[in-house]
Amino acid sequence: MKRQLPLFLVLIFGLFGIVQYFIPHEKSEWMYEFLLDWIYIIGIFALALGIWSLMRVSWDKIKHKRQNWQYSIVTLTGLFAMIFFGFNYFRDFFNSAGLQNYMFRAFFDHIMIPIQATMFSLLAFFIASAAYRAFRARSLLATLLLISALIIMLRFNPYLGFIGDYMERTALWLLNVPNLAAKRAIIIGVGLGMVATSLKVILGIERAYLGKD
């Protein structure tokens, strides 16, 4: 019961996921739309588990005064403040106007958005350090990668004279031709890997995710 029923559910719903693609009938579409909705709704319950996990880990850190425990207070403060405003406790008890609440929006616009954008912009530095790492390439494969990266990066360089022209053409060719071949090989391989993995899950061959006993 503890393991058989879940495996049976995986089989049934997995098979339905495959079969519905071949059935254009309204009933199949209707079921498909229901399933997608269901997954979203269950996701909300899972999110509650997630928030619970975050709170527990943070609280444990504070309670046991683990390293950097002070910052967990910041996490919890941010979390509770946002929940407080998001549910609009401040003005009207518990309504969806929370999403329009000034503080909720301000936290989103002035904490989440700037940090998100800054983290994203860190990529400029990280790509530079990654390029440096690639420059120290010792193996043939890494050298190939480096050369083709260099050709692409220098493709619009006006100081290279007529070489630049060739570089631009080579860059364009690299992006259009070998790139297409490699992507195709990867996509076909990944497709097979995905089908195999899904089938293993649906058939219950791969069942580690369902736990033991």
Partner: peptide
């Protein structure tokens, strides 16, 4: 696990087909 089984099963089936349809066969 019942809920997990439902999610994993459904998404495995749906995505297997989605990938085959959109990428694999055309490639």
């Amino acid at each position: 696990r019942w809920a997990l089984a439902f999610i994993v099963g459904t998404t495995a089936g749906l995505n297997l087909i989605r990938y085959l349809r959109s990428d694999f066969i055309s490639q």
